[in-house]
Nucleic acid binder design. Sequence first.
DNA 1: CGTATAATGTTATGTTATAACATTTACAAG
DNA 2: CTTGTAAATGTTATAACATAACATTATACG
Lengths: 169, 169
Amino acid sequence: MTSSAHGHPSAFPKPGHNHARCTSDALRRAEAVCASRKVRLTEIRRRVLEAVWQSHVPVGAYDILSQLNAGGGRTAPMQIYRALEFLMDNGLVHRIASLNAFIGCAHMGEDNHAAQFLICRSCGTTAELESAPLKRALIQAVAERGFTIDSQIVEISGFCPHCTPKGRT
Amino acid sequence: MTSSAHGHPSAFPKPGHNHARCTSDALRRAEAVCASRKVRLTEIRRRVLEAVWQSHVPVGAYDILSQLNAGGGRTAPMQIYRALEFLMDNGLVHRIASLNAFIGCAHMGEDNHAAQFLICRSCGTTAELESAPLKRALIQAVAERGFTIDSQIVEISGFCPHCTPKGRT
DNA sequence: CGTATAATGTTATGTTATAACATTTACAAG
DNA sequence: CTTGTAAATGTTATAACATAACATTATACG
Ligand SMILES: [Zn+2]
Ligand SMILES: [Zn+2]
Ligand SMILES: [Zn+2]
Ligand SMILES: [Zn+2]
C-alpha cells in the first residue's frame, strides 16, 4: 500500500516530499516485521536502519559508521556490517552492488522479493522497480538457457524524472 | 558468430570444452578490435586479457596481479586496474559488480552492448545472456517510470545447466 | 631530431569488508 | 531467582578491493 514517496506506487521519490514520514513509516513497519518474525530490532540495528533511511540515496557502511559515531561514539565497522546483514536477512534493507551501498527496502514485510533498482546519476536517488513483465521476461530468458535462478541483481543507472533534462527521452 | 564455448550461441560453457580455443579466439578478436579502433593492445593489456580468459570464471584484479607476478614480476595493482579500464572501455572485458571481478566479453567487436550475466553458484562459470525480450521489457519498464536509462547491470546467480541437480527446475 | 601524447612505473593511501575471539545481554528451564 | 545457553555486541586486527599523485619511458608525428 505505501510507496517510497507517498505518491502512487510507481512514483519516483520527489525532491521536496515529506521524508520524515518515509522514515517513521519505515521504522514502524520494521518493528512489525521483526515482531512477526520473532527477531529483535535492537538499538544498533534500529540506529543503522534510521541512518539508511535518512534519504533515498544509498549510503555506504562507513558513512553509517560516521553518523553513529558523530557524537563521540566508538562503534566499529564490524558492528555496522552485522547490523546490515541482519537487516538484509530480514528484508528491511537492500544492498546496491554497483555502489557498495545500502538502501531501505520500499516493500518491507512483503514476500522476500527480488528487487530491481533505478539509480539517478544526478541526484543519487534510488527507487525500487517492481515490474512483473520484466520479472517474467527475466525468468523466461534464464529458463531457456537451462539455468536455475537463485537470486538476481538488476541495477539501472540513468536520470530520474526530476533530473531528466527537458527534451531528453 | 563465435560463442563462449563453441556450441550454438546460447550454450553455457561446458566443463570439458576446448578452452584453449576460447582464449586464442578471444585474443585474435581483441587484436582486430584494437586495430579497428586504433588503440594499442600493449604487452600488459594483453597479459591481463589472457589472465581474464584463463577460464569462464570471473577473476579478481588481485588474482590477475598474482598471476602476472608469479614468475617474480613486480607489477603493481594500479597497472592491473589501468589495463582493466582500457579493456572495459574497448568492450573486451566486463566487470561483474556482485563479485568485484572481471570476465572476458563474449561478444567483442559487436556494438558496445549492455550485457546480462548468468553466474553459477556452484562452479563459478559465468555466461553472457543476450535476450532481446529481456532488454525490451527492461527498457519498457524503465520508460514507464519516466527514467532515462544510461547503463544497466543484470547479474543472475544460480545453477548452470551442468551443475543443476537432477529433478530441479 | 624534438616535442607532444600515451603508456607505464612507483609509492602511498583510501575504501570496503571480514576473521577471530572476548564480553555482555536476553531469556527460559529448573 | 539462579544458572545455563544462545544471541548479540564489543574489540582488535587484517584482508580485499581500488585510486591518487607524480616520475619515467615509449610512441608517433611534424
Ligand atoms: Zn522519502
Ligand atoms: Zn535525480
Ligand atoms: Zn572456454
Ligand atoms: Zn556450474
